[in-house]
Simulated assay, not measured.
Amino acid sequence: MSASADPRADAVEERTLADDARLAGELVRDAGRLALRMRAGGIEADTKTSISDVVTEADHAAEALIVERLARARPRDGVLGEEGSAQDGASGRTWVIDPVDGTYNFVSGLTWWCSALALTDGDELLLGAVYHPHDDALYVGGPGLPTTRNGVPLPKIEDRPLGESCLTTYLHPPFYGDQVGQAFGRVVAGVATLRMLGSGSMDLCAIAQGQLHVACQHSVPPWDRLPGAALVLGVGGAHRRTTAAGKEWSVTGVPSAVDAVCAALES
């Protein structure tokens, strides 16, 4: 059978970014609702790298749900999941999965957590999707896909200087006294105020909605960085990576503040 006669190959050619966005929204909504139901029934957490880096059976179940659905809907695509799912695909595209982003909050009964994923094609970020179960809010968007909340387009992001911006981060106290802390201190010295809420994708949803303004964190894995970055890019925001104190930093938000944060880190 020739490649053109393969119905799966034809289906790949016919897909649009909107089709991928609809699928992404369905996946994170179902994963987030599964995690919420499991939490209601009681769960236990295991520690990964530190007391604040935890994982639960809900993380694993939500990731498995997404991976299984993708195997049927996008069999030629690869997957990369926080909880260990990893498979190269034949299409060059990869679905990057964070089944429960903000697991410490999730375990503690706080509401600032979500299910998130992103779709990439090689090094190109195509889209992100984030579902916040507490608010029943689904965010989908990307560089070429205007960001929506429950299907309603979000307004373009309003630019502002760093001195009028709220910075969000996830920097643990052990880093405050070394070169990483010094680099971060240069950033904080220029901001209006600071928040550390515990879910990178949720923080970036808030930036996309104009509630927060810029995020800065080092050593961010792709599942914590890409879903929310796509949403911010979808409303005209900026996403940059730079190196300071021997670490790679991810900076996302309103363009002027992103530029100022990068300059402070690099100085």
Rank of each mutant, 00 (worst) to 15 (best):
L70E: 08
E57D: 14
A61T: 09
A73I: 01
P75K: 00
R74L: 13
T49I: 11
A73L: 03
A58H: 11
T56V: 14
R74I: 06
A64S: 14
S52F: 04
K48I: 14
D59Q: 09
R74P: 00
A64L: 13
A62L: 06
E57L: 11
T56G: 04
V55R: 13
R76N: 02
T49R: 15
E57A: 14
H60K: 13
A73N: 00
S50F: 10
V54N: 06
A73V: 02
T49E: 13
I51Y: 09
A71E: 05
D46Q: 14
K48Q: 13
H60W: 11
E63C: 09
A73K: 02
E57H: 08
D53G: 06
L65Q: 05
A71W: 04
R72D: 02
R76M: 03
I51D: 15
L65K: 12
R76G: 01
S50T: 15
S50M: 10
P75V: 00
A58I: 09
D59T: 06
D53N: 13
I51Q: 12
H60Q: 12
R69N: 01
A71F: 03
D59V: 10
L65I: 01
V67P: 07
A62R: 10
R69L: 05
A73P: 00
H60L: 15
T47P: 02
E57F: 03
R76I: 00
R72P: 00
R76D: 02
S52T: 15
L70R: 00
D53K: 06
V67C: 07
P75S: 01
I66A: 03
R76T: 02
A61D: 07
V55G: 09
R74K: 00
L70Y: 02
V55Q: 11
K48R: 15
R74Q: 01
E63I: 13
E57Y: 02
A61F: 10
I66L: 05
P75C: 00
T49N: 11
V67H: 08
V67E: 12
D46T: 07
R76W: 00
I66G: 03
R69K: 14
A62K: 09
V67F: 07
A73W: 01
A61E: 13
K48D: 12
L70F: 03
R76A: 05
E57C: 06
L70P: 01
T47K: 14
V67S: 05
D59A: 08
A61V: 11
A71S: 08
H60I: 14
A71I: 04
R69I: 06
D46A: 04
T56E: 02
E63H: 11
S52C: 04
S50G: 15
R69S: 09
V55F: 05
R72A: 04
R74V: 02
E63F: 14
A73T: 02
R74T: 01
K48M: 10
S52L: 10
A58R: 09
T56N: 05
T49Y: 12
V55P: 10
T47R: 15
T47Q: 15
A61C: 11
S50I: 11
S52G: 08
R69T: 08
K48T: 14
R69M: 03
V67K: 06
A58D: 06
H60C: 05
A58N: 07
L70I: 09
D46S: 09
T47N: 04
I66P: 00
K48P: 07
K48S: 08
T47V: 15
E63Q: 15
R76P: 00
S52Q: 08
L70G: 03
A73D: 01
V67N: 04
R72F: 00
